[in-house]
Amino acid sequence: MAGVGIIGTGRVVRSVHLPVLRELADRLPVVHAVAATPDSARTALEGAQMSARAGVDVAALLDDEAVDVVAVCGPHWTHADHVVAACEAGKRVVLCEKPLALGVEDARRIATAADRAGTRVLVGTMHSYDPAWRAALGHARPRLGGARRVRVRAWVPRTEVLVALASGAAPPPAPPAPPPITDPSARAVVLRFALLGLGVHTATHLRALLPEVDRVTHARLLPSGGYLLGLAGPGGTAVLSGFSAGDWRRPDWHVDARGEGGRLRVDLPSSYLRAGSATARWTAAGETRRWSTPLDGYRAMWENVAEVAAGTAEPVLPLDEAVADLDYLLGIADAAAPLLGDPS
């Protein structure tokens, strides 16, 4: 058994993490939570029918000897400092919600702190833990062959709609569309944060299928911070797109990879929704295989945390791979920035 302390009790914590941890209470009991206000932490715990210490002081949580595992779920810009502090406090395991950091230097700072302390750091990109995706990739990757054409598409409703769907509430009305972004430096920042918010979920998938990207062939911002990118590398090409706006109920989040040896298609469940694993299909000459399980990526992720804390397993996504994924993704963002045009 490993006590869990949670930093931040926002939407993903209330909608996903606390419900999963309630299912795993015999292995990962929540013992402490902190948020911007004591009421925020207390309300989140009460909503999950949990009795735990609630407060606002991150240092008090890190000093709590009952906390073995720290879930870092605050604002993105706080992730790196909180993960490093948890490592320096000697915690056994840290699960950091995506993104691990806003820059590669901070990610490497985390890796150094984790190595010094012996803390195991996992990143909360739930699709990386999806059992069907992992099995399908293990089968397809050595068989795809060269001349790969990869498409990664993440078209999902806006976050408020997903949270409402996860909780059974009515979605709030859509906000007005923002005006076009005319400043080139602002467009680059929007792309970077869009990739850190949405593209990061499938960075592991893309890097596994197209390990090297040596140029961005085209780049465009879509309305409301979406993106459409063309990539090329020694192994093939890729089209990477993401869009999170609107109120539709059927997300289209998939990875499609075609090579000389066959085709892999993986349809992924949306974030915030616990809808089982991905559905994956491999097709090649004389062979068709399918993968799908009832186990969703969130539950698989927290089970991996429990196993790592118990010393019975290694992280599904090792920290050095998570850092490499971030470096890969931000390299794409930097290369795409000069090509961005007006999204109107």
Rank of each mutant, 00 (worst) to 15 (best):
S15I: 00
Y129E: 04
G118P: 12
L102F: 06
R290F: 09
V13F: 13
T78P: 05
H254Y: 13
A170C: 09
P176L: 04
T182H: 10
A36H: 11
P269M: 05
D256K: 10
T312N: 02
R263Q: 15
G262I: 13
G168E: 09
G103H: 15
P234A: 12
A232Q: 14
L28T: 07
V34E: 06
Y328W: 11
G259L: 06
T112H: 10
L61V: 03
S270D: 13
P211R: 13
L231M: 09
L229E: 00
V323S: 10
L209K: 13
W133I: 08
A101W: 05
A280V: 01
A164R: 04
E303D: 11
A232E: 15
V16W: 03
R265C: 08
T182Y: 08
R151I: 03
I110H: 07
G90C: 14
A140R: 09
G259I: 07
S128D: 14
M301L: 13
T43Q: 15
A86I: 06
A2L: 08
A35R: 04
L28D: 06
G146R: 13
S277E: 09
W291T: 03
R274V: 07
G124D: 08
T78F: 11
P338W: 04
N304D: 10
D256T: 11
V308C: 02
P142V: 06
R250F: 09
E97L: 11
R27P: 07
L340P: 02
A89H: 08
H254I: 02
W155M: 01
H201C: 10
R250W: 11
